[in-house]
Design a protein around this nucleic acid. Sequence first.
DNA 1: CGACAGGTAGAGCGATCGCTCTACTTTTCG
DNA 2: CGAAAAGTAGAGCGATCGCTCTACCTGTCG
Lengths: 183, 183
Amino acid sequence: MTDMKQRIATELERSFSEQGFAEQGVEALRAEADVSLRTLYRHFPSREAMIVGALEHRDATYFAWLEGGPEEGVGHVLHPLVRLRDWLCEVANTGCLFLNALAEYPDSAAIGAVVRDHKARLAEEFTRRLARVAPGRDTGDLAETLFLLHEGMTQAARFQGREKACEAALRAARAALAAEDIR
Amino acid sequence: MTDMKQRIATELERSFSEQGFAEQGVEALRAEADVSLRTLYRHFPSREAMIVGALEHRDATYFAWLEGGPEEGVGHVLHPLVRLRDWLCEVANTGCLFLNALAEYPDSAAIGAVVRDHKARLAEEFTRRLARVAPGRDTGDLAETLFLLHEGMTQAARFQGREKACEAALRAARAALAAEDIR
DNA sequence: CGACAGGTAGAGCGATCGCTCTACTTTTCG
DNA sequence: CGAAAAGTAGAGCGATCGCTCTACCTGTCG
């Protein structure tokens, strides 16, 4: 059943997010998902597949998390950063799950591909939003700046604390938009 | 001997940097350092101590790497970002060793402490440089912006490619300085 | 009914893990 | 010289790893 696979993927995502990748083996993952070892392996035939499955699930979760928000103006552009702040406060402040995975398995082609795909679409998110708010203008550089701030904020929140990193990133983003006369 | 410990630490740093933390056990580290298992454990009595040792060594290496450069003007402030670009080109483009370690062992107090200490001093680097170039002005926010760009650049370079991330970060940093009339 | 897909529980495989230990050699130095 | 310190080589410990497999149960459907 697809329900089962979804349910397991949800638990894998939560588990890896909370405990990291190195600190728990397959048996621990099985227990968290509350299924038999056989069922776990039926849907995710290796530990690497479990990681990829968790990342794919997180990808969907996170883009759903970004939905909604202001449909125009600065608020529309900044929305992903605001939602990231919410995520860091309400869900987890443990860095980026994708980059954490990449850190542990830098040689895995499968993991690398999922990470690159996710990040490319995330960067595109800023590009799209800027294109909507400032149509006809070349906002490519600005999109890259906002994406860098997004990545920096995610990491800095871990060791500096959420509030400081979030305020700094939003302040910097607003300044960058203001400097380009986007309002 | 301290020489020996230094030499081992150098190899540990290189090894973890190139292969990641999860993908090699103590035996592989021993082989890279080209010492006996007993000697390795004499200087670093546990795998966690090896990681901490590698991070401490990297801390020293990296701050030495930042030395030199312009002593005033925008160049002085941007120097750490320029040197980071050099590092990503010449040494390794594998993200931040400290954050990679934290990703794998989020529950280790020892590792967490080293990471927080390193990052705090790195953030301070921008604060100091700005204070020198724009004495008497409140450049705290700007320093935080530059630090966020530094962190974002480090991560983005991994999956977007060095050039794109480095150019974007330097461009964004210059723009932020210009907007505050720092030259 | 009977076949089968998909679930549970858990024993157990070989490999590898972090780490300790023995036995011996080399270097340092009072 | 001779003791202590610090090195090498590597066997081997118990624990854990990822993963497979057997044995059994349950619901669906032709």
